[in-house]
Design a protein around this nucleic acid. Structure first.
Lengths: 150, 150
DNA sequence: ATTGTTGCAAACATTTTGCAGGCTC
DNA sequence: GAGCCTGCAAAATGTTTGCAACAAT
């Protein structure tokens, strides 16, 4: 019986962040975060995929809890949500004017500001060319917190 | 009775694009596209909002048709969909490494390539600062057509 | 002991689809 | 006239919520 296994450290970035807010560190929350840490940064999963992977590793976490946990982890700044708008998709006219117009989005209240940037347009062109893609349009989404929500 | 009103031009970018594919120019498709042209480039609407606006202007178009039309117009390259993934949101770990990683997305097959860019990161920082936002992360989505789908 | 969290199932929201009738070419 | 398109309603998919039991602090 090893000493270190009995007296392991019980603090963690997740635990600290939660406790600060009166929230609790649960096995489910740890499992979800661990999953993302194991697949590595840069890989993205949907709620359904998180659920499936946890089931496969014989960790039963309900889908509802996964939705709640993902939202929490995003609010804590540990995960990043790859979407712009809250409810459903949004569409806009594609024109020369919009070909380089970008969004600054508040992750708390959803407030959105738009801006332009030639550098970004150029970066998109280069990326498309390098990969053999035919460029249509590029849009930068900057995730931030607006003055009102700090 | 004026001459020009009787003999007006019946071609349009929409009509031409459709006919090339054996598809048809219908009042519904025109109404949806006109709506986006009227609100101007840069404004974005959800399917539901398109529906509501058309109803309000006493043009009855069913919601199902709007969904079908939006998909069509995106495939034709006339509209732009402000989302990355098809079904639902996706999440990924937020780390220093991912703070500047971008997506090159094929609008036909969904294939996604990732890349990095310092210029983009810089542009995001500037935009956040100018608007008084606190930057969290920026991600560029480049919409394009991959070699396999041309 | 207190209070936040989970799981379940039902509710809700969004998007897709089968089919009969209607319209464009 | 042939075949694409629409509207309707139902189904499929994705997400949220109320509530009782449970668990972290």
């Amino acid at each position: 019986m090893s000493f270190s296994s009995q007296y392991q450290v019980i603090t963690s970035p997740l635990g600290d962040g939660l406790h600060k807010d009166g929230k609790r560190l649960t096995p489910q929350r740890l499992k979800v975060l661990n999953l993302f840490e194991n697949i590595g940064a840069g890989n993205h999963l949907s709620a359904e995929e998180v659920h499936a992977k946890l089931i496969k590793s014989s960790s039963k976490v309900s889908l509802a809890t996964i939705y709640r946990t993902l939202r929490l982890l995003v609010q804590m700044g540990l995960l990043h949500e790859l979407e712009i708008s809250e409810g459903g998709h949004r569409y806009e006219l594609l024109s020369n004017e919009t070909a380089d117009h970008h969004h600054l989005i508040c992750i708390r209240c959803g407030r959105t500001e738009e801006f332009e940037s030639d550098e970004v347009l150029k970066a998109g062109k280069v990326a498309a060319k390098v990969n053999g893609f035919t460029l249509i349009e590029s849009s930068l989404n900057v995730r931030a917190i607006c003055p009102n929500c700090i």
